[in-house]
Design a protein around this nucleic acid. Structure first.
Length: 468
RNA sequence: UCCGGUGUGGCGCAAUGGUAGCGCACUCGACUGUUAAUCGAGUUGUUAGAGGUUCGAGUCCUCUCACCGGAGCCA
């Protein structure tokens, strides 16, 4: 007989059933039977199994039917006699795959997320993490669906890369050299620490790193396939210790030929709204759980975002808004200075009370590849800022003019030689194009209402932490 | 990296410088078509680590480590 998932049993019809899963809790009755709650991850709800103590072999497995044990139950799916569940399984046979001794760390009570992080191999068995991972899965799926429906091509950009393309923070170095005695340029060996390390002898023949963004490679393919998107792991070796940063995270980066900044913002807004409404529809049970146990306003918040237009304002307008604010800020508000977290929060949470898109930032505070506006003061950059979370999307229209890009590289003290192929894209058949990056974990965080980004990824990597 | 906070049975927490307690879990018993079941009894501690002050330190001081929150950086 084939196993039926609990999700299907709960919506199924009476009859023979085979359930396999992990025991959440057991309640004994002196009436000669026990209740077992079993979960198999197919949904948040457990199925209740009723076991008559007269069942053959029951006495030999009774002490193995504990919280955490893994079991296979054969029985009859029937309408429940008790309250609290519609269907239940009357057991006719039980097999214990793996008992869980009394030192099983997950108890029938709430645990702190800090504690659960220490047992990342067991935390997926909790209600919260099961729900998070189902939502995460659905979001990943609907990201692909959104772009596939629009004819975007899914592109895998390299994870190992040779240059710090954006100047975006610290990178993880990748090497196969012997760290205790690396080869030196001057041929010196043991002890000669003055000679520079000879990376020509490294695996790739030069210094290599883990990618901080697939954007530049994404642009290459957008200049051929017109609309592409990447969705893959990204690495930042920043010593960031916050609830919104990971050293290894997943990023979605669409890149589109023939899109200007307005098209780019339209896509970003449509994208977020699509993902949120999809999750409300397809993860309703899990979302109810988050609304009840994690953040009692989450459903209302998501609904509001889906139903309302994002507020779009230029950086300059944002500065004006901040300058007329009665609130006092820790950091100065002045044109040309970066917007701080407190400024972004004020705008999205106090002034507009909804997602905002700030665009046309000062040229000096943004990356070299962003398209310069007329006058040269600002670039066509845009950030999507969500209330309570902050930046979830950062993007821009790219500079497609060869001469302007070359000058921008020089102005920012970057070596044009290293960007030769990026410049070539502007030399041969250049086109206006745009793109953005969305932090996948930040999306999961926002949708679930979870406070710490370390709890929305299966195995978080943060400074001093790469366990499991 | 900076600022602030925390570190006590398996887990969540308490304890004026003076006998380390409570809840949950666990064990035993009672009760029950039960629902995070309930009721009674019982077991569980190198108070993160190292040093110091003191007659006496979980508590005060110094250092180290870890974690949490905020900031910076960003997605």
């Amino acid at each position: 007989m084939k196993r039926t998932k609990i999700k299907d049993l709960l919506n199924g019809e009476e009859g023979e059933a085979l359930v396999k899963g992990w025991v959440k809790t057991r309640r004994d009755s002196k009436g000669g039977f026990s209740f077992l709650e079993i979960n198999d991850g197919s949904c948040l709800a457990n199925i209740q199994v009723v076991i008559e103590h007269t069942l053959s072999d029951y006495s030999s497995i009774e002490n193995q039917l504990m919280t955490g044990s893994c079991v296979s139950v054969r029985g009859k799916l029937v309408a429940s006699e008790g309250k609290g569940q519609s269907m239940e399984v009357q057991a006719t046979g039980i097999e214990v795959y793996g008992p869980a001794p009394a030192d099983y760390p997950l108890q029938k009570k709430r645990h702190s997320f800090e504690f659960l992080r220490e047992i990342a191999h067991l935390r997926p068995r909790t209600n919260t993490f099961g729900a998070i991972m189902r939502v995460r899965n659905r979001l990943a799926f609907s990201i692909h669906r959104f772009f596939q429906d629009k004819g975007f091509v899914y592109l895998n950009t390299p994870i190992v890369t040779t240059s710090d393309c954006e100047g975006a923070g610290e990178m993880f170095q990748v090497t196969t050299l012997d760290m205790s005695n690396p080869p030196r340029v001057d041929g010196a060996v043991d002890g000669a620490v003055n000679g520079k390390i000879d990376f020509s002898q490294d695996f790739f023949g030069e210094k290599t790193f883990l990618t901080v963004s697939g954007q530049l490679e994404g642009e290459i393919y957008a200049m051929a396939l017109a609309e592409i998107y990447t969705f893959g792991p990204t690495f930042r070796a920043e010593n960031s210790n916050t609830s919104r940063h990971l050293a290894e995270f997943w990023m979605v980066e669409p890149e589109m030929a023939f899109y200007d900044l307005d098209d780019n913002m339209d896509l970003a807004e449509e994208f977020i709204k699509f993902l949120l409404s999809d999750i409300m529809e397809h993860c309703a049970e899990d979302m109810e759980f988050f609304n009840k146990r994690i953040d009692t306003t989450i459903l209302e918040t998501l609904r509001n975002i889906i139903d309302n237009q994002f507020e779009r304002l230029t950086y300059t307008e944002a500065i004006h808004q901040l300058q007329k604010a009665t609130e006092t800020f820790t950091y100065p508000v002045e044109w040309g200075f970066a917007l701080q977290a407190e400024h972004e929060r004020y705008l999205s949470e106090k002034v507009f009370k909804k997602p905002i898109i700030v665009f046309n930032y000062p040229e000096q505070i943004k990356s070299f590849y962003m398209k310069l506006n007329e006058g040269g003061e600002t670039v066509r950059a845009m950030d999507v800022l969500l209330p309570n979370l902050g930046e979830i999307i950062g993007g821009s229209q790219r500079e497609e003019n060869y001469d302007v890009l070359l000058q921008r590289l020089r102005d920012k003290d970057l070596d044009p030689e290293e960007y030769w192929w990026y410049l070539d894209l502007r030399k041969f058949g250049s086109a206006p194009h745009s793109g953005f990056g969305l932090g996948f974990e930040r999306l999961v965080q926002f949708v679930t209402g979870m406070e710490n980004i370390r709890d929305v990824i299966p195995f978080p990597r943060t400074p001093k932490h790469a366990k499991f």
